[in-house]
């Protein structure tokens, strides 16, 4: 397995520069954003909006502006993690383009080891993405009141969980149905998560969409608030669910690789 992992590292090495740039840019933008929101133009803009004579705009400013800023910041913070998973996907694509499966099948490496190398790569991408996000947050959080460390980490873990779920299903799909179908694994996972979210909130959704117009915006806000509250407080549950799913998909991929040979 070590040899296969070294090959993966060589594949990654070519793209590490771009990943480094992504991490650096995301970090720089986050820092600029938090500094500006506290001391720069963004801070001035917030102050102007909060001091407006229109009471409705002032109320919006108090609730919505920090909220929006927090989420803009969160999205920037998630970029290194997203780029890490993209790197993993690029290794699999490189293998496919080179027809490496032919060489892999001729090596004295078991299918468990070959699938294991891929799973290790996914786990490494996940871990490195989370660690980099933790470092970025360590710089950003003290410089802003927009978000707390815990809230941000919950969001990071929720995103890492979704990414891990996608990669897990894609890993199994790749071995079960062929390397080209891995992308459908990703799409299917996202669709499945969307369906689960809808089913889990069916009552609330029904109430919102059947409510009279005057109540609708309030209910919509409740729905939105519930989603945000889940991400900020219980995001780690997504990752906790994703880890056993990853394990199950690894064994399913191993089983598929043994039955359907010829996959890298």
């Amino acid at each position: 397995m070590k040899g296969i992992l070294i090959k993966d590292v060589y594949c990654l090495k070519r793209k590490l520069f771009y990943w480094g740039i992504t991490v650096f840019m995301a970090g720089a933008v986050c820092l600029m954003f938090v500094i500006s929101s506290k001391h720069g133009n963004l801070a001035k803009f917030f102050a102007e909006w909060e001091n407006t004579e229109d009471p409705e705009s002032a109320a919006d400013a108090v609730f919505m502006i920090p909220f929006l800023c927090k989420w803009v910041l969160s999205i920037f913070l998630l970029l290194p993690l997203a780029a890490a998973f993209d790197l993993v996907q690029s290794v699999f694509t490189d293998d496919e383009n080179a027809s490496f499966y032919k060489v892999a099948a001729s090596l004295p490496v078991s299918r468990f080891e070959r699938v294991g190398a891929r799973a290790t790569l996914i786990a490494a991408a996940l871990s490195s993405g989370i660690v980099i996000d933790m470092i970025l947050l360590a710089f950003c959080v003290p410089a802003t009141d927009l978000l707390t460390y815990r809230e941000a980490m919950e969001v990071v873990m929720a995103f890492a969980g979704v990414a891990l779920l996608c990669q897990s299903v894609a890993l199994w799909f790749g071995y079960r149905f062929g390397a080209q179908t891995a992308m459908y694994g990703n799409l299917l996972t996202l669709a499945g998560l969307a369906v689960l979210t809808v089913l889990g909130n069916l009552k609330l959704l029904k109430r919102t969409f059947t409510a009279p117009d005057e109540l609708k915006s309030g209910y919509l806000y409740d729905l939105f608030d519930k989603a945000v509250s889940f991400l900020e407080n219980k995001g780690h549950f997504v990752l906790l669910i994703a880890v056993p799913v990853f394990a199950v998909c690894y064994f399913a991929a191993c089983s598929a690789a043994v039955r359907k040979r010829g996959v890298a």
């Binding site: 070590k2 040899g3 296969i4 070294i6 090959k7 060589y10 594949c11 070519r14 490189d94 293998d95 383009n97 080179a98 027809s99 490496f100 499966y101 032919k102 060489v103 892999a104 001729s106 090596l107 004295p108 490496v109």
Partner: peptide
Amino acid sequence: VGVVFDEMGFHEFLTPKQIDKIMKHVY
């Protein structure tokens, strides 16, 4: 067993030096 295919299955960006490092940990 040594295997030679009709098409090279190694990634085009790999150099023989790198292939040596990979194979050292395979065989």
